[in-house]
Simulated assay, not measured.
Amino acid sequence: MLNIGIFGASGRMGRLLVQETKKHPDLCLSSVFVRRSLSPSLIQILPENTFVTNDLEQFLTHCALVIDFSLPQALASLLTALRKHPLPLVCGTTGLSAPVWGDLQELSQHAPVLHSSNMSLGMAVLLKIVSVIAKDLKHADIEIVETHHRYKKDAPSGTALTLGQACALARGWDFEKVRTTHRDTPRQEKEIGLASLRGGNVVGKHTVGFYLDGEYLEVEHVVSERDIFAKGALQVAKWLVLQPPGFYGVENLYH
């Protein structure tokens, strides 16, 4: 039985994780961290013996692995506490600053850490696929289009950036030098374009296109239900707890 702690249980993803954990007999939701008092709706779905607290150190002492879907500032506080009590960490928070990235890397020296902007298992496979295509079709122009619901704040999405990074790495490019989200001149030879669409209640759609003269190849990943991210995060947790200290991505599950 793996005792997991959910950091940010009051959020949308946190609630989905609480619900999904109940379906896994080999998992126990041993603790949840909430910054404010519990809402009635969260109380209704929590297992009876779950430890609930707004004290980070107490939260960490009641679990063997932490799953985080919060905000960058909240994650920074969690990582500060994990310096004293290193635990395996599954992190899905995006929009991280350089200092927070550094803290994640530091924690990975003492415990296994997995960060991914998209916890779906299909995306784990897609990351491997686009790397192979980018390398083999070395003359193809690469364009990435992502579509999300009207309320999504960041653009391009973290997943689109991860896909772009995978393609750039496969070609030996510096992603920050070749990425572009705007064009007012003809396309450059070494360039990875990223476009963002927002509308309706689209959970997530990512298309990576490889364009040659006379032919092109597009690969696409679509998420139709948000709980797929919670399901993926729990599968990741079961895998991660068996790994040695290090920094991992969701694509490592299929190595």
Rank of each mutant, 00 (worst) to 15 (best):
R150D: 15
W173S: 04
A155I: 11
V130P: 02
L163Y: 08
R150Y: 13
E176W: 08
I133H: 01
A168D: 04
L163M: 12
T162Y: 06
P156H: 04
W173H: 05
I142G: 05
I129T: 13
P156K: 00
G158L: 00
I133F: 07
T181P: 08
I129K: 08
R179V: 11
T181D: 08
R150P: 06
E143D: 15
K135G: 12
V130S: 02
H182I: 10
K153N: 11
I129E: 14
T181I: 09
D174K: 10
S131C: 11
T159S: 14
H149V: 11
A160H: 05
R150H: 13
V178K: 02
R171I: 03
R171H: 02
L127G: 07
V130F: 03
I144W: 03
K128Q: 11
D154F: 08
T181R: 00
V130D: 02
A168L: 06
A160R: 00
L137E: 13
F175N: 04
C167Q: 03
D136E: 15
I133W: 03
I144A: 02
A140M: 02
E176K: 06
T162P: 10
G164W: 01
A170K: 01
I144C: 06
A140L: 04
S157V: 04
I129L: 14
A155R: 03
L169R: 14
I142P: 00
P156G: 06
E143Q: 13
K152E: 15
A168N: 01
V145F: 12
L126V: 08
A168T: 05
I142Q: 05
G172M: 04
H182L: 12
